[in-house]
């Protein structure tokens, strides 16, 4: 009888400790999102994305903002850290780029951070080439 009590007590303590560890590392100090390993919420073309944003920025924000999306389009500009698709979707990369994408159709995955009214572009960050 006594032995059973100790077993129950230890298991309760163990559960509490593991829950604590989970809460500490899994919630409080959880690493930032890793966009490259997330499955995209949307797979769309660059043209459709900019169309949605020019038609109704608020509605488009509610759809795409902060979501991981995969965008397909032709690369129209390329710098060492960014690729612009169809002149309207600005994709920022974390690492320096050394791929040659110019004028080629590509698919890029990243997090949509919103619409830039200064340059009339949709901005995507933490990008990776599919």
């Amino acid at each position: 009888m006594n032995r059973r009590k100790t077993i129950i007590a230890t298991s309760i303590v163990l559960v509490i400790i593991s829950a604590g560890i989970y809460f500490y590392y899994g919630v409080i100090f959880k690493e930032a999102r890793n966009i490259a390993s997330e499955t995209p919420d949307f797979r769309i073309t660059a043209k459709k994305l900019i169309e949605d944003y020019t038609a109704d920025p608020k509605k488009a924000d509610s759809l795409y903002l902060n979501k991981t999306i995969e965008i397909t389009g032709k690369a129209t500009k390329e710098t060492d850290s960014a690729i612009v698709l169809e002149n309207t979707v600005f994709c920022l990369f974390k690492e320096k780029l050394n791929t040659k994408m110019m004028d080629k159709k590509t698919t890029i995955k990243g997090k949509c951070i919103g619409y830039d009214e200064l340059f009339l572009e949709v901005k995507i960050d933490q990008c990776s080439v599919k």
Binding site: F29, K30, A32, R33, L65, K111, I113, G114
Partner: peptide, 9 residues
Amino acid sequence: KGFRFKVAL
């Protein structure tokens, strides 16, 4: 949304 912190929370 483009601001990045070390800690996700």
